[in-house]
Design a protein around this nucleic acid. Structure first.
Lengths: 200, 200
DNA sequence: GTCTATATTGGGATAGAC
DNA sequence: GTCTATCCCAATATAGAC
């Protein structure tokens, strides 16, 4: 499992692009972080341009997230949980928060470099949102159908996921908790709102 | 109301910084957009650096939003509306969406340039979030106290605003509606979730 | 595969005329 | 207050030795 120079360049790109942006990251810095001599053209042995690296970073990161989402070692929802129960929903919401945590660098890159590579936003949107979030939102909406209101719409699931995304991004952008409310309290309130405060 | 060159530079900065970032915007472009000769140092008569302009842009934008939020010509909530009623809540949520719309350039800038100027995030967080959103979230939570559950916590208001923020940012980042659900349907689902589908 | 050295350029910034 | 002209540097990119 020795990390190749190419891997280390990808790591360097992910970290630097997320925090300082592509334009804010000189190629020299990528070389240093990857253990190459500062100022040497070593970078160009692996990527033609910074945009080239950017695209590779995004693709690898999407695959990583998709892989860990389907990771069999990941804690599975307890089969004994009743879909739509309070504990089930708390688990779902917590998982969504964890996913947002692991997506943080990718989201930071997306926010900055959206227009830099044609189809980059569409790529992320298609793979992660359309596939992952869409399915999750449908699962939640379906399970909630009994608890809230049958209707066949995914909208309740969308509301739930949007709330998680909004809370997480606000915290990420402003640092700390902008609402003055911690994550645990937020999750409780969200679940209360959906199920009512004295659901099973 | 003749717009000064300084004003036009601020306009140019807002538009270009929001779409292409500070690093992606050469000073030449700012000069052109402001009607100055391309390549002339005209920019420097008004701002010392691009970061200087960035800070001025953010400050002006915050003041503008604060001013229009308190604008007396803005449609006021109908006094006949019962706080906590369905129509009242729809109105609140719609207002929050409108605010997000008008904040779009500022949010785009914040997402990119957060770390560029010390205290920029804190500035926006303090003025807009702490003051505006915090108060709104408390208003909603208080009004909902009767409809949902008395408890004294702002959390339900925070959930509501977070959902709006999450939906809006997702649409902004991915283009179109990532959830496959339109804004109207989303608002309906959000209000249903909070009040129940057959509230007054 | 990685280094030293260097060519090239895009863009930030200034001087001084008008 | 705006222009022309120019300096300067940081960063991309390449050539060629090891």
């Amino acid at each position: 499992m020795t990390s190749t120079t190419r891997d280390r360049l990808l790591d360097a790109g992910l970290a630097s692009f997320a925090t300082k942006g592509v334009d804010g990251t000189p190629i020299v810095e990528l070389e240093e972080r990857a253990g190459l001599a500062s100022g040497s053209g070593g970078f160009y042995r692996y990527f033609r341009t910074k945009d080239d690296l950017l695209e590779a970073v995004v693709r690898r990161e999407i695959e990583r997230v998709e892989a860990t989402s389907g990771d069999p070692t990941r804690p599975q929802p307890d089969a004994s949980e009743v879909a739509g129960s309070r504990r089930w929903l708390v688990e779902r919401v917590s998982t969504a928060f964890d996913l947002m945590d692991s997506l943080e660098p990718l989201v930071a890159i997306l926010a900055r470099e959206r227009d830099r590579i044609p189809g980059l936003a569409a790529l992320i949107a298609g793979r992660l949102v359309a596939d992952g979030a869409h399915r999750e939102q449908r699962t939640i909406a379906t399970a909630l159908g009994s608890a809230v209101e049958a209707g066949g719409s995914d909208a309740p699931g969308a509301v739930l996921l949007s709330a998680v995304v909004g809370f997480h991004l606000s915290a990420q952008y402003f640092g700390g908790s902008p609402t003055g409310i911690g994550r645990e309290e937020f999750v409780d309130a969200l679940v209360d709102l959906v199920l009512g405060p004295d659901a099973p």
